[in-house]
């Protein structure tokens, strides 16, 4: 149980730091808010057009803002030269990775609780009550998948040169399935488009999360340890 305990302690440390500084969450929420506002301006041909692209606006915003969060997952440790020590904690690298993923997931979910209602308000969409479940599920599954991939690549690319080129080049293609499924499911939840069955898309998102929940910790442990 020492691995789980180590992971829990790392997570508690990260959340405490965040509670006291509110650095990451403030950045993510404000950035997401700005992106939504800019998109709303850019697509404001008429109300219908804005509503039609609303799912896309929402998911692109979430991915961009989430990227801000994942790119600084290990910033504290790196700035103080604590990466090697962190990897040598009793739980090992897998526990470190899991703790960081849960941390990122918490940040993402908090951000979504703020941003999603605001986005709906800005683009003038009233969410039908039967759509709430699908939307919530899609947001949760998407956030899990994004946290898994984003944390891994944030850790790997934190030190790399040409970071700014590499993150979009590598992270965005990998999360494209989540983005497509998320946009489709959000459209369904808004009552747009054909009344498709959301089950296929939800299954794909679950599959994505499961595959990378298995693979990403292994890659993390293999890549981050010298």
């Amino acid at each position: 149980m020492s691995a789980l305990r180590a992971a829990f302690l790392i997570l508690r440390k990260d959340l405490l730091v965040e509670l006291r500084t509110r650095e990451v969450l403030a950045t993510m929420v404000l950035f997401a808010l700005l992106v939504v506002v800019i998109f709303a301006f850019a697509f404001n041909i008429d109300q219908d057009a804005t509503q039609a692209v609303a799912p896309g606006i929402l998911w692109v915003t979430l991915v961009f803002a989430g990227n801000l969060g994942t790119s600084r997952v290990f910033e504290g440790e790196r700035a103080h030269g604590a990466m090697v020590g962190l990897m040598l904690t009793p739980g090992g690298p897998v526990a470190v990775y899991l703790a960081k993923v849960v941390g990122v997931l918490v940040f993402m979910l908090v951000m979504e609780i703020v941003i999603v209602p605001l986005t709906l308000m800005f683009v003038g969409i009233t969410l039908p009550p039967e759509g709430i479940g699908v939307l919530a599920l899609a947001l949760f599954l998407g956030s899990v998948g994004f946290a898994l991939i984003g944390t891994l690549f944030g850790a790997m690319l934190g030190d790399a040169r040409m970071r700014e080129l590499l993150v979009p080049l590598v992270v965005y293609p990998v999360v494209v399935p989540l983005l497509i499924a998320g946009v489709k499911l959000t459209g369904l939840a808004f009552g747009q488009g054909l009344a498709e069955d959301p089950a296929d898309w939800l299954t794909m998102m679950v599959g994505f999360d499961l595959i990378f929940a298995g693979l990403a910790p292994w890659v993390f442990a293999r890549v981050m340890v010298e």
Binding site: I149, L152, P173, V174, V176, I211, V219, F220
Partner: peptide
């Protein structure tokens, strides 16, 4: 690491 993640990612895409 990128390539190993890339394999299943390409399948999922």
């Amino acid at each position: 690491g990128i390539a190993v993640i890339g394999g299943p990612a390409v399948y999922l895409i």
